[in-house]
Design a protein around this nucleic acid. Structure first.
Length: 594
RNA sequence: GGGGGUGUAGCUCAGUUGGUUAGAGCGAUCGCCUGUCACGCGAUAGGUCGAGGGUUCGAGUCCCUUCACUCCCGCCA
């Protein structure tokens, strides 16, 4: 028998009564009755109540034992009387009478309590992460993460994918996020970069003829953190397939995600076949390319209506003439909502930096009229056209705003969330997935007016390759897609461009000449000249999948050893200074701070 | 780089209009208690009120500067 335990702390049941057992674990809680002491012993698996009374020579020592000390208990399983059964724990019908014990690991006074539902500052949690991770909720989150990852591995294997590792030290690339750089000792003055994603490698794996690849891939991007974005590193389920069209990738991912979410959550899926929403449509209907489809509200463009002569809403009419647009959200049957609801939205919009949200309610006496501060500017005919255009009925209300398209999208998207929240329209018990498809290949930088790749520069443009009009780059669509769940972007993917000439052409539009492409993407562009198969893939973010399954809002709740917002590891003290010898070997000298 | 929030005992927090010696719960220490499971009861220790400067007879409280953490914008093909 193992010297530490015969059972784990979740292992004992009524059938074990009378057995002599060894248990090892942490002292989760003590209840000291003076002559009788209860100890809840905890390990990864559960909790077992152990008991000792003053007749035992060890009583007074155990009584003084600090919580979270690791001890080994030698005792006998006894049955609890009916009144003392604890239904909260699996082992609650029995307890262990302590005969002897040993201390395996002592514990100093704790900087934070373990057995408590209190919230603690991130600072202390991250510094003592090994204590924080003992706590029930986060301990279970991390176990869930492990199970999700092995489930996904298994599913991918079943679907015929092969798992490969790709290099961590690679080359810096000009597009995309800021790279983490690693100086090369053997190549003075040169640097490796940590991969932002194994993008080029996975395409090279396809060119190498492996057909279907996946990897639970670490990705490194030196960008600022958010609640749902770790600084530095995160994990993707990276996958790539040869000889596929967009639909083939969708089928694999839908199968995988449906199985995963069904297996790990009790929440329902809104639709098993994920809706496909063109980017352009999403930007109008939801104001964003990551819509929360649990929210039934839809945004409508009603700019045209403001060209009518019988509408006297002069401020908006003037803005429309100078190129602004008007978009609205209809709320069903809200005529009896208090004035404070409507004014609350308007005030909220002003707090967001917009010029507010106009509103009125469609009502009818003999004729249709708009009830509310700006209702009077609309004639009966204008209101009827508005109702026809938006599908609004009598008793519904309309919220609308006028602005340049980009700002309008931003505020209507936020308003859609805000109004749905105020009206309690979002079913928290649902996962609503969708695909966003038909992304534009390029976008114009608002500041520099330069044409940039809007997403992945290696994406295949849509349509007949010979007929693409490169003079109108903003009109070129790509086989580029995102998957979104409950308003959270889970991943981006694309059918890749495997044709070198087309690649050069597309890069030239974004301002890169052939030499630059050859130099910066040498590995891949070279490979495409030696028989590359058509291929495509995607890379769902693993951390965010686990966040959704664990119902957590913060990525650090599903990450074992995260860094803080300033990209510091408070437990390991990273980043840290290094010795002059190390710097010298790397041919690096530091500028001293002023 | 910019904006918001927070910072008081080991932990979680309260602290009124600027006014006596800055409080509570948990934890720690000591004592009492044989059926608890957030055990109960009593006592004790524990504070540079994030830091610095200013206003004032007097600052945890007001003002300025600064630091830390956090949320958001920028950024994240």
């Amino acid at each position: 028998m193992n010297i530490y335990r015969s059972h784990n702390c979740d292992g004992l049941r009524k059938k074990d009564v009378g057995k002599k057992v060894l248990l090892s674990g942490w002292i989760n809680k003590k209840r000291d009755h003076g002559n009788l002491l209860f100890i809840d012993l905890r390990d990864n698996y559960g909790i077992t109540q152990c008991i000792i009374d003053k007749d035992n020579q060890h009583f007074s020592i155990l009584e003084k034992m600090q919580l979270e000390t690791v001890i080994k208990i030698d005792g006998e399983v006894v049955c609890r009387s009916d009144e003392t059964i604890n239904k909260e724990i699996n082992t609650g019908e029995v307890e262990v009478v302590i005969k002897n014990f040993n201390v395996l690991g002592t514990c100093k006074e704790l900087p934070m309590p373990i057995f408590s539902d209190q919230e603690y500052s991130e600072e202390i949690r991250l510094k003592y992460r090994f204590l924080d991770l003992r706590r029930k909720k986060i301990h279970e989150n991390i176990i869930l993460r492990s199970k999700v990852i092995s489930f996904i591995r298994n599913e991918m294997n079943k679907l015929g994918f092969l798992e490969f590792q790709t290099p961590i030290l690679t080359s810096s690339s000009p597009e995309g996020a800021r790279d983490f750089l690693v100086p090369s000792r053997l190549n003075p003055g040169k640097f490796y970069a940590l991969p932002q994603a194994p993008q080029q490698f996975k395409q090279l794996i396809m060119v190498s003829g492996f057909d279907k690849y996946f990897q639970i891939a670490p990705c490194f991007r030196d960008e600022d953190a958010r609640a749902d974005r770790s600084p530095g590193e995160f994990y993707q389920l990276d996958l790539e397939m040869s000889f596929v069209e967009q639909e083939d990738v969708f089928n694999v991912v839908e199968t995988l995600l449906v199985n995963t979410f069904k297996n790990f959550s009790k929440k329902n899926l809104l639709e098993k076949k994920f809706p496909r929403i063109p980017y352009k449509e999403s930007m109008i209907k939801y104001g964003t390319d990551k819509p929360d489809l649990r929210n039934p509200l839809i945004i409508n463009d009603i700019t045209e209506i403001f060209l009518r002569d019988d509408i006297k809403f002069e401020i908006f009419k003037k803005l429309v003439k100078s190129g602004s647009k008007v978009r609205c959200i209809i709320t069903k049957n809200t005529k009896n909502k208090p004035r404070s609801f409507f004014d609350g939205i308007d005030k909220w919009a002003k707090d967001q930096g917009a010029s507010g949200m106009a509103y009125f309610t469609f009502e009818k006496d003999k004729e249709v009229f708009g009830k509310g501060p700006v209702g009077k500017f609309f004639t009966k005919e204008a209101l009827e056209e508005l109702m026809k255009k938006t599908g609004a009925n009598i008793g519904d209300s309309i919220f609308f705003a006028c602005n340049k398209e980009k700002d309008l999208e931003a505020i209507t998207s936020l308003a859609r969330n805000k109004i749905a929240k105020d009206l309690d329209l979002i079913d928290e018990n649902i996962f609503a997935f969708c695909w966003i498809v038909d992304y534009p290949m390029y976008e114009r930088d608002e500041v520099t007016k330069k044409i940039n790749f809007s997403h992945n520069p290696f994406s295949m443009p849509q349509g007949d390759i010979d007929k693409i009009d490169f003079n109108k780059p903003l009109e070129i669509l790509a086989y580029q897609y995102d998957i979104v769940c409950n308003g959270i972007e889970l991943s981006s993917g694309a059918i890749r461009n495997h044709i070198p000439e087309l690649m050069y052409k597309l890069f030239s539009v974004a301002g890169y000449d052939k030499n630059q492409v050859d130099q910066k993407f040498s590995g891949m562009i070279n490979a495409l000249n030696y028989g590359a198969p058509p291929h495509g893939g995607i890379a769902p973010g693993l951390d965010r999948i686990v966040m959704l399954l664990a119902n957590e809002k913060n990525i650090r709740e599903v990450t074992m050893f995260p860094m803080n917002q300033n990209a510091q590891d408070l437990m390991m003290n990273a980043p840290s200074e290094v010795s002059n010898d190390q710097l010298k070997e790397l041919n690096i000298s530091l500028k001293t701070k002023k």
